[in-house]
Simulated assay, not measured.
Amino acid sequence: MKKKIVLFLCIMGIMAVLTGCASSSKEIYTPQNIQEKKAKKVADKFVKKVQKEDYKDIKSYIYIPDNTFIKDDDVSWYIERSNLEDIVGMSKKQIVLTNMEKDNTVIDDSDNNNATTRKLTYTTEDSEDYEIILVQDRNNDWKIYMPDIYVSNYKYKAEKNLTTYINGIEVTSDYIEKSNGVVDDNYTTYDIPFVPNREFTITSSDGFKENVTSNDSDVQIEKNKK
C-alpha cells in the first residue's frame, strides 16, 4: 500500500511540474500603493469584459474627453481588431497582471496635458503578453487609453434650421463652430470633438441620411426639396 501511495504522489508531482511549465512563469504583480490598486481594479474589470464579450457600457472604461457620439459598438468593433483580439471571447483563459510601470504616453487632450499614465502588462496561461495603457482623467479616475477608437475635430455643414444627428444622437448648438467673424447665412458648420474611427451615419430632421467616415470632409446637408 505504501508503494502505491508513493507512486501516486510521484505522479502527482510530475503532473504539477508539467502544468507549471505549461502556464506562465511570470509572477503576479502586486500593486504598490492605492492608485495602483485602483488602476488594477479598472483594468481587471475591463479585461474580464473583453474575455466575456460583455460590451455593455464598455465605453465608460475608455478615456474619451467627450464620448457623446461614441457608442459601445464603436469600442467593441475596435477592440476586436486591436492587440486584444486574441482574448476576445476567451473567458476560460487565465490572464493575470504581471507588471505595472510608469508610461510616457502623451495624451491628446489639451485639458489634461499632464495626465498620469501607467502601462500594465497582462500575461495569459500560455505566456502571451498584452499591454494596456491607463490614464487618469480630469476626475482622477483611471481609464483605458485607446486613442485609435476615435478621430477628433470632425466638421460638416448643415443648412440652417435643420436638426442633425450622428448615429441617432442629436447634434446640439453646443457643437456649432465659432464663426471667427465669418458668417454664412445659409449653412451652419458643426465641429464635433470626437467621432468613431469607422463609418458612422449622419441624418437630419428633413430625411437626409448618409454613411460617412472621418475622412469625408466635404459633407453638406441640405433641406429636402419636395
Rank of each mutant, 00 (worst) to 15 (best):
M1K: 06
M1W: 03
M1D: 12
L7P: 00
L9A: 14
C10P: 00
I11F: 12
M12G: 03
M12F: 11
L18Q: 09
S24V: 04
S24N: 12
Y29D: 03
T30M: 12
Q32S: 10
K38Y: 14
A39E: 12
A39C: 15
V42F: 01
V47Q: 03
K49Q: 14
E53G: 00
D54P: 01
K56P: 00
K56F: 13
K59W: 08
S60I: 07
Y61L: 10
Y61G: 04
I62S: 04
I62H: 08
N67Y: 11
T68L: 11
K71E: 07
V75M: 07
S82L: 05
L84I: 08
E85L: 07
G89W: 09
Q94T: 10
T98D: 02
E101M: 11
K102E: 15
K102D: 15
V106L: 14
I107V: 15
D109Q: 10
D109H: 08
S110V: 08
D111Q: 09
T116V: 15
Y122W: 05
D126I: 05
E128K: 09
Y130V: 08
V135R: 06
V135A: 11
R138K: 15
D141M: 09
I144C: 05
Y150E: 07
N153V: 03
E159Q: 15
N161A: 11
T163C: 06
Y165I: 01
V171T: 02
V171N: 00
T172A: 07
E177Y: 02
K178C: 04
S179L: 01
F194C: 07
E199A: 12
S204M: 06
F208N: 11
E210V: 12
N211G: 07
S214I: 00
D216P: 02
V219Y: 03
